[in-house]
Design a binder for these strands. Structure first.
Length: 949
RNA sequence: GGGCCUAUAGCUCAGUUGGUUCAGAGCGCACGCCUGAUAAGCGUGAGGUCGGUGGUUCAAAUCCACCUAGGCCCA
């Protein structure tokens, strides 16, 4: 009689496939979630629970422009892990994703798409085109984010361009105005005098242009800080290519670390930077030089000199080295007063790090109204922002005798005047061909010109101080986030809120038609907000100003006619008030629990949100701020299109699936920058296989197991099965702590450890015999299945925030699952077995012996003595405690070591391996002593024979 | 140039307040076994002067300084 005993072996069986095939399967799972409204039900069921805690992770809005990149994926997946974990934990963690919609990048793209058509469109029409553009990208990005498996209110997100949000932007602006934080100031911007419009940096193109190149002497009123020069009148030498900015000159900047020289030329004492003296003489007095061909740029030692000073002018170059009367420290020049060459005023010498030795004299003509650096340094010195040029490029009255002249045409006149008055040191005809900013539309040279703009004052009502104090009441993760934002708030200038653009929320201010006085009225702004609520920002242009001002009169002159402000709000205000427009509006409460964004947002969203919230509400809008690093390539380099080292999330999803991407996010320590490469992703995919197969094995082993009928009470489980539960509990604790502390990578590693070591190589391997060959419905086998059932479902529950698709899929194959979806099952709440500590200690030691045994088995295997370990019989020599433990565990040892026989012996510790005697049981492959005890099954061992009865 | 940060095996990460157990884990790799988890599973093994240099200390991956490489934000 030939019995095929293989058919009697209870092998694992499951429909949960080994091959994940995630790219195909995930979309189906996604559909399932949507159809069953899993997220909505999850949040709703948590909200029903009495006393449920709320946890609000407020989404920082990505910009609605372009496809999502890997950084977006990292950010959204991290958020999703947090949201899912909190919900699983039973907290009400709703998540409303958002988009940032206004702003220059979209306006520029739309500009380009519209082309010349734009000229015939009014602002409302351009706005509509921008809306459509943003809408298109929101839809695309939304699908991409959903494909990542991110749960949220995708059907009801927030967008900064929705009417309600636009209204809220105005309301928050009104709140800030009411509290007195807004003021009007001047700031230079690029300006096209042909188109009479401000330009963004992106709208400026550099083209070659020929400018005058002149050296001008400014007469010092103060004496130079050098005794031997006492009584001598000295002059500061500046160089400029824009004579028309001289009427706006309010300072001369020197570098604090440069050395300057006082050089006597034609009876005047001229001050220039030491390293630029020869350059200056080459341009203005070549006869002073022995070497005529002085290079255009600075001398070779200029850099060394620039950093430390030291060294003298190479006197070999000079005809009259003795004309260097003195060397002066840059720092010592600060505060010297000079007289403007043609305006009736005196101005100071200031210090600035922006001064270079690249060109000029090391003394920089400074006009805060006409240059970004000039403006910056001017702020530090409290200089006025003087702009004597109107929008059409004509000098105003403030330019004195040049009033009414076109600035570029006035260049020649100014130079001639300087020459006549003896202030010009160079050839009046000298010119320079250089790269100069031009308007991208009309290609005429642009100017830098200060215009009136609105600012949020950092000093009003102690805003800066109060913001710094608020920072210390926020939990920054990692901690250094605090230092980062603190330093920024400490040093930043007032916030310029005006943008000279179209696509954004108008600054809700009007100006008196009579005296140009601004009307900053919270009541008027309220009407504006109401109009926006109904019509969007288009209302600003559709309605006459009177519709909003409604009879209000100018507080200064009493006139009742107004014109509207043309500028819009900085988009950082838009997203910066999301705490009001979203968290307050939707009743989440402010401050929210968490903002979670990349580390660039210390300057961005964390920053703008903090300022608006402290100004308006007096506290930070968040309790915690979590930052992650940037995604770098495999070599740790930043990704860029030009380097061609970008990795698109879409590509990974197509090749591996979103769960692999999610696993990548969870495995990385995101507090630092995170790397991604083919190698890394492939490695994660291997790790995924391990986890998946571990789960699959459990599901297979649970074939035919009905927990309601077959489960064994935990205290009656076999000791090894209780050990498995102890390991599960330890893992459970680690993983929960990792989620709580936002250290997800620790969860990943703990999970790999659990799957690869505790489960796969130890537990599963050891219980195989029990599962496969013992009596199918016997208690020992049911004991193992009970443990597996518990382990499997807890693993799935705790993995669900990360491996959402896989956990969801596997949950569907779990017999007797306690909830319809893994996401509705909650976190594991299982207690550790009462004797967990003892079990871990006992098996820990036994497994140490097991490792020794395996070493010897491997030797025997290499020697050809055995193949699989069941072919071995081992003798273990041990003494003391170990011997006692082994004696106690004697019956269990063959199972634990997966050998056919274990003999204990005296003597120094060691292991001997020999081939197991006798023949193997045809069914369980163990070389058993009692083979053939049942005459009905002569080739089987006693255990197998009884299993078949 | 400034502010903040990072640097441990090929990869991803542990390494609490410096000290027997501190140079670890998993993966990958090499070699072998199994063929009853099979495009799986098991075993054994090789791999690092803890970015570099100098210092503090009886003792440093761990503290300090500088340097190198890299990241973000400014200028």
């Amino acid at each position: 009689m030939l019995v095929d005993y293989k058919d009697t072996v209870n092998l694992p069986k499951t429909a949960f496939p080994m091959k994940a095939n995630l790219p195909q399967r995930e979309p189906e799972i996604l559909r399932g979630w949507e159809e069953q409204a899993i997220f909505q039900r999850l949040v709703a069921s948590n909200a029903e629970r009495p006393g449920a805690k709320r946890f609000v992770l407020h989404d920082g809005p990505p910009y609605a422009n372009g496809d999502i990149h890997i950084g977006h994926a990292l950010n959204k997946i991290l958020k999703d892990v947090v949201v899912k974990y909190r919900n699983l934990k039973g907290e009400v963690a709703d998540y409303v994703p958002g988009w940032d919609c206004h702003g220059l990048p979209i306006e520029l793209k739309v500009d380009k798409e519209l082309g010349p058509k734009k000229r015939d469109m009014d602002r409302a029409q351009i706005i509509e085109a921008c809306r459509a553009y943003a809408r298109k990208w929101i839809d695309r990005q939304r699908e991409s984010f959903k494909r990542l498996g991110v749960f949220g209110r995708w059907d009801d997100p927030y967008t900064t361009m929705s009417k309600g949000y636009e209204a809220e932007i105005v309301r928050t602006f009104a709140r800030a105005a009411e509290k007195g934080f807004l003021f009007r100031g001047k700031k230079p911007v690029y300006w096209c005098i042909t188109d009479r419009t401000a330009l963004a940096e992106a709208e400026v193109e550099y083209e070659d242009h020929t400018s005058p190149s002149i050296y001008v002497a400014f007469d010092l009123v103060s004496p130079l800080p050098e005794a031997k020069l006492a009584g001598k009148k000295a002059r500061l030498v500046i160089w400029t290519t824009t004579p028309w900015t001289l009427p706006a000159n309010l300072a001369v900047a020197a570098h604090p670390d440069f050395t300057y020289v006082a050089y006597e030329l034609h009876g005047q004492v001229l001050v220039v930077a030491k390293d630029l003296l020869t350059r200056f003489l080459a341009d203005c007095a070549p006869d002073e030089l022995l070497v005529k061909d002085v290079p255009v740029a600075h001398s070779p030692d200029a850099h060394a000199a620039a950093t430390g000073g030291g060294g003298l002018v190479p006197s070999a170059h000079l005809v009259h080295p003795e004309r260097i009367l003195a060397y002066l420290d840059g720092k010592a020049l600060e505060g010297l007063i000079y007289r403007h060459p043609f305006m009736d005023r005196e101005s100071p010498v200031i210090l600035g790090e922006h001064v270079t030795l690249e060109a000029g004299t090391g003394l920089v003509h400074t006009a805060p109204g006409h240059g970004a650096e000039d403006y910056q340094v001017g702020l530090a010195y409290g200089l006025e922002v003087l702009n004597p040029v109107d929008g059409a490029g004509r000098f105003t009255e403030e330019a004195g005798k040049y009033a009414g002249k076109k600035i570029f045409e006035a260049n020649a006149e100014i130079v001639a005047d300087l020459q006549a008055s003896g202030h010009l040191l160079s050839d009046p005809k000298a010119s320079l061909r250089h790269s100069y900013p031009h308007c991208w539309r009309c290609h005429n040279p642009v100017v830098f010109r200060a215009t009136d703009q609105w600012f949020l004052s950092l000093e009003h009502d102690g805003l800066r101080k109060r913001t710094l104090a608020a920072i210390d009441r926020v939990q920054w993760i990692p901690r250094w986030g605090r230092e980062r934002i603190y330093g920024m708030i400490e040093n930043r200038p007032d916030w310029c809120l005006s943008r000279q653009r179209t696509w954004g929320v108008p600054i809700p201010v009007f100006y008196c038609e009579g005296c140009a006085e601004p009307l900053v009225s919270p009541a008027v702004m309220g009407r504006v907000a109401q109009a926006f609520e109904a019509e969007g920002i288009e209302a600003w242009y559709r309605h006459a100003p009177a519709d909003f001002t409604q009879g209000d009169r100018c507080p200064k002159c009493g006139k009742a006619e107004f014109r509207r402000e043309q500028d819009i709000l900085d988009v950082w205000w838009d997203s910066g008030v999301s705490w009001a427009a979203v968290a307050e509006k939707r009743g989440f409460g402010v401050p929210v629990d968490l903002y979670l964004e990349g580390s660039d947002q210390h300057r961005g969203w964390f920053h703008s949100s903090l300022l608006t919230s402290v100004a308006i509400r007096g506290q930070a809008p968040y309790r915690g701020v979590l930052t992650h690093g940037f995604v770098l390539d495999g070599h740790g380099k930043a990704m860029s299109k030009s380097l061609g080292n970008t990795v698109a999330p879409e590509e990974i999803i197509k090749k591996y699936g979103a769960d692999i991407l999610r696993l990548w996010v969870s495995a990385a320590d995101y507090r630092d920058d995170v790397r991604i490469s083919n190698e890394i992703v492939a490695g994660l995919a291997e790790g995924y296989t391990k986890i998946r197969n571990t789960v699959r094995y459990m599901l297979g082993a649970l074939d035919g197991f009905d927990p309601a009928r077959d489960a064994v009470p935990v205290e009656e489980l076999e000791p090894l099965d209780r050990w498995a539960l102890a390991k599960l509990a330890a893992w459970d604790e680690k993983v929960k702590a990792a989620y709580e502390n936002y250290e997800f990578h620790l969860a990943y590693h703990a999970t790999m450890q659990l799957c690869a070591v505790d489960l796969s190589s130890l537990y599963f391997d050891i219980i195989k015999d029990r599962l496969y060959t013992w009596k199918k419905d016997g208690k020992p086998r049911r004991s193992a299945q009970t443990a597996l059932w518990l382990v499997c479902q807890d693993v799935l529950r705790l993995l669900a925030p990360v491996l959402s698709f896989t956990a969801s899929e596997a949950w569907g194959h779990l017999p007797g699952r306690p909830a319809e979806s893994v996401f509705l099952a909650g976190l594991p709440t299982r207690a550790r077995p009462a004797d967990a500590d003892a079990l871990e200690a006992r098996y820990g030691k036994l497994f140490e012996v097991r490792a020794m045994v395996q070493k010897k088995l491997e030797e025997a295997r290499r020697a050809g003595l055995i193949g699989k370990s069941l072919e071995a019989a081992v003798t273990i020599r041990a003494e003391g405690e170990t011997r006692a433990l082994l004696e106690e565990a004697k019956a269990e040892l063959p199972t634990l070591f997966i050998v056919s026989k274990v003999t204990l012996a005296d003597g120094p510790s060691g292991v001997d391996v020999e081939r197991a005697p006798g023949e193997k049981c045809e069914r369980c492959w163990i070389y058993a002593d009692d083979r053939g005890v049942d005459p009905a099954h002569p080739t089987l061992c006693g255990k197998c024979a009884s299993a078949l009865r």
